[in-house]
Simulated scan of single mutants.
Amino acid sequence: MAPIPTPPAEPQDSPDRYVGLASQDAEREARASGWTTVRSLPPGAIITMEYLVGRLNFEVQEGVVTRSWKG
Rank of each mutant, 00 (worst) to 15 (best):
M1V: 09
M1I: 10
P3Q: 09
P3Y: 06
I4W: 01
I4L: 11
P5K: 09
P5W: 05
P5V: 07
P7D: 08
P7Q: 06
P7R: 12
P8G: 07
A9Y: 02
P11Y: 03
Q12F: 09
D13C: 00
S14M: 09
S14P: 02
P15I: 00
P15T: 01
D16F: 07
Y18D: 00
Y18W: 13
Y18A: 07
V19S: 03
V19H: 00
G20E: 12
L21T: 01
A22P: 02
S23P: 04
D25T: 12
A26S: 08
A26Y: 04
E27G: 00
A30L: 08
A30G: 03
R31H: 11
A32R: 14
A32Y: 05
G34H: 04
G34M: 05
G34W: 05
W35K: 04
V38P: 10
L41T: 14
P42K: 00
P43S: 11
P43Q: 11
G44Q: 13
I47Y: 14
I47G: 10
I47A: 13
T48V: 10
M49L: 14
E50K: 08
Y51D: 11
L52I: 11
L52G: 11
G54Q: 01
G54E: 02
L56E: 02
N57P: 01
E59G: 05
E59I: 09
V60G: 04
G63E: 13
G63M: 09
V65L: 08
T66Q: 12
T66W: 00
T66A: 01
R67F: 04
S68K: 05
S68F: 03
W69L: 06
W69P: 04
K70P: 09
G71P: 02
G71W: 03
